[in-house]
């Protein structure tokens, strides 16, 4: 049997909202350590890796390792029925072909239970190498979302150039061109508002902005986003999921031929 209970069910709903535009179905790997998921978009340009550690749940029980094929589209629809302060329990009974989502209101006066059929998915698992990135930019996730949205107006690709002083996002297309430059914050009251750059080497990489905008669907999970970059390496765009884990999106760069 697998059972995991989350007092703030809304966190799980935000995780699903963060994933479901990039991948519509995925295999969840459940073990004693927690839940992990790795999936690529249909064109194999981007990859998402999710980790939710067991100690982040109020209660967590996983008697044996399980691979659960789940439609994220359906799960998202079910989770929309959850109240914003509801407690969420995810359960898979032994020998069952369904996942049960139970939602309980804070005053314990309402209790809802939904079942979703599990799917047999062919999933390909990739080995993600440990990388010492040349540059890690940390910035408010709302700012990153706004920049990606704005860049998409100008063109299909965004070039991210990072130096020790700042990071520049630029795009050009048929309508024109533009760029936004952020300097490293020198003095901020709140850490979550800061832009910080750890840099070993300057980088300039070009990415499809459409994918960056999909990654930004996970921005409500975290005040800050980390962008890790090296030349000729996929971007890693990370949002923390509270102190229980993370969503890491990887995006293959575009190159000039």
């Amino acid at each position: 049997m697998f059972e995991a209970r989350l007092a703030q069910g809304s966190i799980f709903a935000k995780v699903i909202e963060g994933l479901r535009e990039l991948v519509t179905e995925a295999t969840w790997e459940c073990s004693g350590n927690g839940i992990t998921l790795q999936a690529m978009d249909s064109s194999h340009v981007a990859l998402v890796s999710l980790v939710l550690r067991s100690d982040g749940f109020e209660t967590y029980r996983c008697d044996r390792n399980m691979s659960l094929g789940i439609s994220l589209t359906s799960m998202s629809k079910v989770l929309k029925m959850m109240g914003k302060d509801d407690t969420l329990t995810i359960r898979v009974n032994d020998d069952s072909d369904a996942i049960v989502l139970s939602m309980e209101s804070q005053n314990q006066e309402e209790f809802a239970e939904y079942e979703l059929r599990l799917m047999d998915l062919d999933s390909e698992h990739l080995g993600i190498p440990d990388t010492d990135y040349s540059c890690v930019v940390k910035m408010p996730s709302t700012k990153f979302s706004r920049i990606c949205r704005d860049m998409a107006i100008l063109g299909d690709s965004v070039t991210i150039c990072s130096t020790k002083d700042g990071v520049k996002f630029g795009a050009k297309g048929d309508v024109g061109q533009g760029s936004i430059r952020l300097n490293q914050s020198t003095n901020v009251d709140k850490e979550e508002d800061a832009v910080s750059i750890e840099l070993r080497e300057a980088v300039a990489l070009t990415f499809a902005v459409r994918y960056l905008n999909m990654f930004c669907k996970a921005a409500p999970l975290s005040n800050q986003v980390n962008l890790s970059m090296s030349e000729d390496t996929p971007l890693m765009c990370e949002f923390k999921v509270g102190d229980m884990g993370h969503i890491r999106f990887y995006l293959a760069p575009k190159i000039e031929d």
């Binding site: 690529m40 194999h44 990859l47 990739l126 993600i128 070009t206 293959a252 575009k254």
Partner: peptide, 14 residues
């Protein structure tokens, strides 16, 4: 011309 690379260029299937 800008070419989009694939995840498979960088990460191998396990």
């Amino acid at each position: 011309y800008i070419r989009q690379l694939s995840m498979h260029t960088f990460f191998v299937t396990l």
